[in-house]
Design a protein around this nucleic acid. Structure first.
Lengths: 288, 288
DNA sequence: CCTTATTATTGCTATATAGCAATAGTGTTT
DNA sequence: AAACACTATTGCTATATAGCAATAATAAGG
């Protein structure tokens, strides 16, 4: 089988007119260049470079061979440049498996935003929650909820905070306490990023669509509005830690709060995750 | 600087659909193929082959990269085939430096015969006797006469016999003895292969053009004609050994005979003499 | 003409590599 | 379901290689 060994060195010597200059260009030793070219000549059974000390020139055979090798080296550069560009321009298709309501409501919108930032990228989300085969299905990563079972995958924690609903005592006094998440549609709700709130109903996580007169994507504004009795709010429990503790706000539908389970991003234990996957994962982790 | 390392292995895996099959094709170990491809992926910073045990397929990046690498491998094969063919079809130019009358009269005609046997070969003989530079002038070999001075060259003995002129006693009696080679134009000469005879005149070798009524390229016929008094003959001394010893022929212009010096073929001490040079040298040695 | 600087080659040695063998995984056959 | 055959990866070791340094040759400068 033919070998590319010595080709790069030979082309460098031919172009630079000497072994030392070629070695400098290639950032290696003159002895290495000398030996690589000598080995190439041995394999081919002919002399490519005519040399006396301090003078190197291409032989007739060498000139013809150099022309062809030059094209090979250029072709390699182009191939490497193209694959490099491909990596950093995020083209191709990002394939994600993301089951469940959380993925539908939080992951999908974020990935759509991500896709908008990379016009040449296609995002393909599979909401089927079956066990996927990363190789066969060419899945870049999956979003999984709860405890993980496959130890061969790499897991990155995506989100681990429970979402809770609260209201002010005044609001409760005036409007009553909802006894079930389904009754939220009859209440005024303060909407943060999402008007689908998740509750653990009969052991399964369900999303309830809510509505209200106040919307804000600022957590503090949401907490303030809630304290002023504008409605029921739904945020990570940590956002209400203080106001619940000093009874400024009271928990609502506490029996339906989900466990503090974690959502994960999982992907194959491979050395090189495509950059599009890596960047998408980082984007999700940073923005969720 | 880009490297071709792993390209051949990667293409083989892509085409054979597995590392083991690729290893068999390349006549190397599976561990070598595995490592070479892994190193290539490391350099490029992306995965070219998606693999689980017993299953290998090209990734999206890998497919594009494979197409380009396939062209590189094909190009290398073509380049190697072409240089291989070039070697064995004796094309290109044979460049010889051959000074002096001997080269002119013996080497040149033989090289012309050689060239006739290889239609795609060009023979370029430089009759200038200056010291040539093998590298700068791209000389394949040189013909040199007498003692060699450059020990860095390889020397092959070409011919080592002195040429001598003789005549029969009858011829001498009838026509007188020429006292100087210049007088040969006034004598009848028996011409073998060449009508320019070499003599050592005033320390330098000069060729004298002769003429006569008898020509033959057969040494025995020449000797016979000389014995019958048809003229003066000029052949290697060995051809007349017997006839001179029994006085059937007598030496002529003995003071002008050259020393029994040797003609050499010399060429660079290089590992790979172009085949055309090698075959030409062998041809000269076999036929002179 | 002598000295200096730079070249290419090669002996020698520390380091990287190719192959062997062990390991884990998976498809096929019984 | 178990056994078998084949796969890819990786630890380990003998061997090949890359770089250092010595050497010889040659061009340039004083």
């Amino acid at each position: 089988m033919d070998s590319f060994e010595g080709i790069v060195e030979f082309v460098a010597v031919a172009e630079r007119g000497g072994f030392s200059a070629a070695a400098r260009q290639l950032a290696c030793s003159t002895s290495h260049v000398s030996r690589q070219v000598a080995k190439l000549e041995a394999r081919l059974g002919c002399v490519l470079l005519a040399r006396s000390t301090r003078l190197v020139s291409l032989t007739e055979s060498g000139t013809a061979y150099y022309q062809q090798c030059k094209e090979l080296v250029t072709g390699l550069q182009q191939a490497n440049e193209q694959i490099n560009q491909q990596q950093f321009h995020l083209n191709g298709t990002l394939r994600v498996s993301a089951a469940g309501g959380f993925a539908e409501q939080f992951v999908a919108p974020l990935l759509m935003k991500f896709a908008q930032q990379h016009p040449e990228l296609t995002v393909n989300i599979d909401f089927d929650s079956r066990m996927v085969n990363f190789v066969e299905d060419s899945i870049d990563f999956a979003v999984r909820y709860g405890e993980l079972t496959d130890s061969s995958l790499i897991a990155r924690k995506l989100v681990s905070r429970p979402m809770v609903a609260v209201a002010s005592p005044d609001y409760i006094q005036q409007n009553g306490t909802p006894q079930h998440p389904n009754q939220l549609k009859n209440h005024s709700c303060i909407i943060s990023n999402n008007d689908h709130w998740l509750f653990n109903i009969d052991g399964t996580q369900q999303s309830i669509k809510v509505s209200g007169r106040w919307r804000s994507n600022n957590s503090n504004a949401v907490v303030n509005a809630c304290q002023h009795g504008l409605g029921i709010a739904y945020l990570p429990k940590s956002s209400f830690e203080n106001t619940i503790n000093n009874n400024q706000l009271v928990p609502v539908l506490e029996a339906f709060w989900g466990k503090a389970a974690t959502s994960w991003i999982v992907y194959q234990n491979r050395q090189f995750l495509p950059l599009r996957a890596k960047m998408a994962i980082d984007y999700l982790i940073d923005n969720i």
